[in-house]
């Protein structure tokens, strides 16, 4: 009885420490975004603010074209998500279910693209887009991520886990290949789809490198580029304004996480229906 209580207390404490480790930086960001510049530099620091400085947020919007950049971020992110759905799902399905000439070679080739660092191909890619006069277009931001080897790999593994009999039953139920993919396989793979979409969403939403390389004007730049520009402003760094920008940047990610939580857990504990 006593030991049980101790064990539970220990477990609770460990959980609390974990929560603190993950939560503290986040709390610090929100806190800093509500401080005055003077408070951000104070030593020892304050762990609470009594008069939150909401004007830091309007300051963000004054210094950068926030809403236009938000729009750019949304367009690029949705564009990439849609393109990946269209390319990744059929490719993964084909790799998982069909043996065709060169299928394993092509799959190997797909996987090797994961091993090439972005820093190695950004120059040729930039030159290519600039020759096609596509710099400063949404297409140049979307196309490099229009497919994903990692997502193809993950989806293929998920499709492969589905017992053959289910597909065979569907074939006997008069379903064509496209219908089997959409109505039978995709719903089974839903947790993986949601997780991959979330990973892609976060990666795209936070991506700084590609938008920086492939844009020269604010008209097509996305939020991360804009937020970084905040601390370049006026020489010194206004941490409070910078953090306010960051808060605005992560809000959509938080919302997405909140809604996808259940599916993510499912994706990593996939149990087939035997």
């Amino acid at each position: 009885m006593k030991r049980n209580v101790l064990r539970r207390a220990g477990r609770g404490l460990a959980g609390l420490i974990l929560v603190l480790i993950f939560f503290a930086p986040f709390y610090w960001m929100v806190l800093t975004s509500l401080k005055t510049l003077g408070q951000t530099l104070k030593m020892p620091p304050d762990f609470w603010v009594s008069d939150p400085q909401w004007r830091n947020f309007s300051e963000v919007m004054r210094r950068i074209p926030f809403f236009s950049m938000l729009k750019n971020s949304i367009i690029v992110t949705i564009g990439i998500l849609v393109c990946q759905c269209l390319t990744v799902i059929p490719a993964a399905y084909a790799f998982a279910r069909f043996q065709f000439r060169g299928s394993s070679f092509l799959f190997g080739l797909t996987l090797t693209t994961m091993m090439i660092p972005a820093q190695m191909i950004f120059l040729p890619l930039f030159l290519m887009f600039s020759k096609m006069q596509m710099i400063n277009t949404y297409a140049s931001l979307i196309l490099p991520s229009a497919s994903s080897a990692f997502a193809i790999f993950m989806m293929r593994q998920t499709f492969k886990q589905v017992p053959d009999e289910i597909v065979e039953a569907a074939r006997l139920d008069h379903a064509g290949e496209f219908k089997i993919m959409c109505r039978v396989m995709l719903p089974i793979a839903r947790p993986t789809v949601v997780t991959l979409a979330l990973i892609t969403f976060i990666a795209t939403w936070n991506d700084y490198f590609w938008p920086l390389v492939l844009t020269t004007k604010d008209t097509v730049r996305t939020l991360p580029v804009g937020i970084t520009a905040l601390h370049l402003d006026e020489g010194g760094i206004d941490y409070n304004v910078l953090m306010a920008g960051n808060v605005l940047l992560v809000i959509p990610v938080m919302i997405a996480f909140f809604f996808a939580q259940k599916q993510i857990i499912k994706a990593f504990t996939y149990i087939g229906d035997k």
């Binding site: 289910i166 719903p187 089974i188």
Partner: peptide
Amino acid sequence: VAMVFQNYALYPT
């Protein structure tokens, strides 16, 4: 023809 499988092969979703 209709087939019944050993492991049922129901559509889980």
